[in-house]
């Protein structure tokens, strides 16, 4: 039995190997590009949803924020709550139907569909990630005069990214597998290759076995790389003590522009006192 299976796989590979490899290539490109764009969409939505809104802010700002929040909510609920296979059909046929615009490339539609689907999931992950950062981090940043935008960019989002890295990996692996539904609009990814080849030579099981192994290889490789990235993001486990004398020699050599405050410790009075 097993020998028969291996022989079948070998014969399929000999004839259609390059087609399968091309399918793998398309699947990987679609999954990577769509996950990246989805992350960007997710971060934008997550950030928009967490803009603070104080009662003393102007009515215009509050109304705009409210509308943004509603729009993001609707987007998330719609694209998280419907199957991606249906979204693909909906957009592929819906856009020409309403706008008369026909997609020039099947790549464009596929990337759009998978990206906005991923974005809907990521929006919630990012929102959760931002909320999980201790409020003290925001207060610390505000206390040294950072604006909300600076606080997010330099303090909150770097920590959020690290925290939601496992979630991004999750989404990527889901995308590697779920892009298979794109065969419905004729995108020739890995699974579409199986449908085509097995339909031509009627060897369904050997081809499916190859597909199983192929997908598993792709996802295992992804898990492995993601673990490595997480480790990198965690930073060094130890630090080097710095020789204090070396630093003390450089401190105080800079010639400050006169600021003129008597309490500026770099002022002349203070230096003399010291």
């Amino acid at each position: 039995m097993l020998a028969q299976l291996l022989a079948d796989i070998a014969s399929i590979w000999a004839k259609y190997g390059s087609v399968y490899l091309n399918g793998i290539k398309n699947t990987l490109i679609l999954a990577i590009v769509a996950t990246l764009i989805g992350c960007i969409i997710g971060f934008i939505c997550g950030i928009l949803q967490t803009i603070p809104c104080a009662p003393q802010d102007g009515i215009v700002k509050r109304v705009i924020l409210k509308i943004i929040r509603i729009l993001v909510r609707v987007y998330v609920e719609v694209f998280r709550g419907t199957p991606m296979i249906l979204q693909a059909v909906f957009i592929y046929y819906g856009v020409p139907y309403f706008f008369g615009y026909t997609f020039s490339s099947i790549w464009t539609v596929s990337i759009v569909v998978v990206s906005i689907n991923t974005g809907a999931y990521m929006a919630e992950s990012v929102r959760g990630g931002i909320m999980s950062i201790d409020i003290g981090q925001t207060e610390g940043a505000k206390a040294i005069g950072m604006t909300h935008f600076q606080t997010m960019l330099y303090v909150i989002l770097p920590q959020t990214l690290k925290n939601i890295m496992p979630q991004i990996g999750n989404n990527y692996i889901i995308n590697v597998k779920d892009t298979s539904v794109m065969f419905i609009i004729g995108f020739s990814e890995f699974f579409a290759v199986h449908k085509m080849v097995s339909g031509a030579i009627f060897k369904y099981f050997p081809s499916a076995t190859m597909e199983m192994a192929g997908y598993l290889c792709m996802t295992l490789l992804a898990s492995f790389i993601l673990r490595w990235v997480e480790k990198k993001l965690a930073g060094a486990g130890s630090y080097e003590l710095v020789n204090a004398d070396q630093l003390a020699a450089t401190a105080g050599t800079y010639n400050y522009p006169k600021k003129g405050s008597p309490f500026d410790e770099t002022s002349k009075e203070f230096r003399n006192e010291r």
Partner: peptide
């Protein structure tokens, strides 16, 4: 204004990243 009025917190609030 906040930049001119510094604050040190009970829970430090150093930036962990």
């Amino acid at each position: 204004y906040r930049a001119k009025v510094g604050m040190v917190f009970q829970s430090f609030n150093l930036f962990y990243n």
